[in-house]
Design a protein around this nucleic acid. Structure first.
Lengths: 205, 205, 205, 205
DNA sequence: CATGAATGAGCCTTCATTCAT
DNA sequence: CATGAATGAAGGCTCATTCAT
């Protein structure tokens, strides 16, 4: 068995164990038992328990980065909204296709400690920056309302994160297209009917 | 010093320590040192470390429940949107006024283990149910667009959670009114300008 | 049992175990078993295995320093040679009265690692400096032959060290007075009879 | 590469590693890395880590034995003192010419464990016996003062050991001839000037 | 012979919890 | 009620040794 295969085998076992028991609940013994290797072998491939967890998280983070494409203007065959929607669709697919790892990112990696918090925040920084770029593009092009791009980016990020968190932890099954459509509709049009918007805009502000 | 005061003193110390170091990073020794009590005294007030953490989380959860009011129709002085906005405002205030405990709920309590995950999910179930009730009310009354209330409730929840998470962990300062206004605007009207909505609605769907 | 007593009890057990098995052969489990305490108790008194070993060695080193008195001139009731002899006698007594700890210093602490080697060398530096001071005093006063004080100090140190090493490791019994007398005689007069010294001095140099 | 060459190559690497890190600090991995061989190869040449260390120590011990010649009387061209001095000179040269191995014998091999301690003591037994033989010869021939030959042999051994230990561990440079001369002078004549000897001999004993 | 991936016994250390005072 | 010394189960990591290729 070559090195990469063995490494992948350990990573796979670790994913299952971390997803099932959380970071602290997972013992190295659990991982090696699941991977059917000796304890020492584990340490031939990863310097310590923390490291393999980091590899798992980083790997997933990279896969997310890999499916995200910055929205560009001017391509008539791919309007910006569609591009955004495709990004959402791909991220959702990524998470639902690998629910254990998604759970690790969205639940187990949260609040591990200060150092890991910073790693997560840096990742979400990247995502937020991407979203903010898109928003600014839209604002400049006139089809996105002006407003605080940072806060709105956090909101958009939070919507997707929460959806994935709930689905993955509850093992809910929702058709992906419905999910994406609902999210996009909420983001694009808001919650309210057009008539209500007019009424509300007169009263609430 | 009476029992309740002592108990509160320990809870306060625990809040600070958990917020600073996370659940596993916090040692009972840290808490008693901060509370200036003996180790044994801790166990006179709480059966174990897990329990005090639960009390902290539950307390915050109750405070959140305490500021949430179901939206009702038919009160002309308090239109539903305003009621919702007030709910958001109060939750945001609660979190930002007690950032350490908010961090505990939003970060440290996440992914602790299966049992605690269920506790969190149950709490979010309640919140989601509340939001869903509101949505359904709005749909029935004709001012909220029809659509998957569950998914949209998750989205709304996620927006607020992420905002609080980011602000609390990054120690960011954003005026609360701006925050709430931005969120409400996004929720009510969506991201897009009215013209764009018409264009998009023709093409993306 | 008060803290100092408990600490002493652990130190005593550690002395016996280290002396019997050497640093690496001694497990913390052995020490706590011998001290009849739980493993955790050990760590209430010493940060780690290395530390208690260091305390043992440092303690013995201090006791040695404690019995050494710099040789002074001009006291007719205590000629320099007698002062030196008393130093030797006291060091020998110290070692033979606490053979286990002497073995730890002379055997177990040797070659532990670079850091500990430096600690030992620093100690022997002090001893050598003391001896050198005495030698220089004697040279200046005209009763010690001129010569390399450093090298001669090492030699004198080595004589005592080796004697203690051999006696302690072999559990030999030699009357202390005989020991000291033989050493002093060797140091003072050399190995050779007076006639031989004259012959040798003509030929060997 | 023939077996002996390969074996020598491993021994050389082991010498460097043991001298640098001590017995326990040296990992078999370090040795094979330095020897540029595979881990398994190591075990084709030596049954275990302890064994190669033993080979190193034994080899050095044999080299020491090899340069030591029992002192004989009756050869007018080689007076006994000169023979002894030559022995010292050769041992000193051996150590200083191969400082790493000397450090292994004098520092790393000390206090390893009971079994190895006995091996060392056996070696020093041999040396002591040799010295004692010489002393007895001298006593019988009338040029060495009577006295405890065992203790005096330990002293002479200790002098040379300590000198080598200090020089090797501190990486000091002292001209070998000076070293040997100082040692011989100390042994032959003692520390004191002739006048002082007379005074002392009246008072100190 | 050589390789180096795999093994697993061993050991130090942590820390939540208990209980005698 | 309060104390804090004592407990000991638990788990991460190392590294000498083996063996299939």
């Amino acid at each position: 068995m070559d090195r990469e295969t063995r490494r992948a085998q350990i990573l796979e076992a670790a994913t299952a164990v971390f997803a099932e028991k959380g970071y602290h609940g997972a013992r190295v013994d659990d991982i090696v038992a699941r991977a059917q290797i000796a304890k020492g072998t584990f340490y031939l491939y990863f310097p310590d328990k923390r490291a393999i967890f980091g590899v798992l998280v980083d790997g997933f983070v990279e896969r997310i980065h890999g499916v995200l494409e910055p929205v560009v203007l001017g391509d008539p065959s791919r309007p910006p909204v569609l591009q955004a929607q495709e990004n959402v669709r791909r991220v959702v697919s990524l998470c639902l296709d690998d629910a254990p790892t998604a759970k690790i990112l969205l639940s187990d990696a949260v609040g591990l400690d200060g150092a890991f918090d910073r790693r997560l925040l840096a990742f979400y920084d990247d995502l937020t920056a991407l979203v903010e770029d898109g928003l600014r593009l839209g604002v400049d092009a006139g089809f996105v309302r002006p407003g605080d791009t940072r806060v709105r980016a956090f909101c958009l990020l939070g919507m997707v994160k929460e959806l994935m968190y709930q689905l993955v932890l509850r093992r809910l099954e929702v058709p992906r297209e419905d999910l994406v459509a609902t999210v996009m509709s909420l983001v694009l049009d808001g919650l309210f009917t057009e008539e209500a918007q007019h009424l509300v805009s007169q009263r609430a502000r």
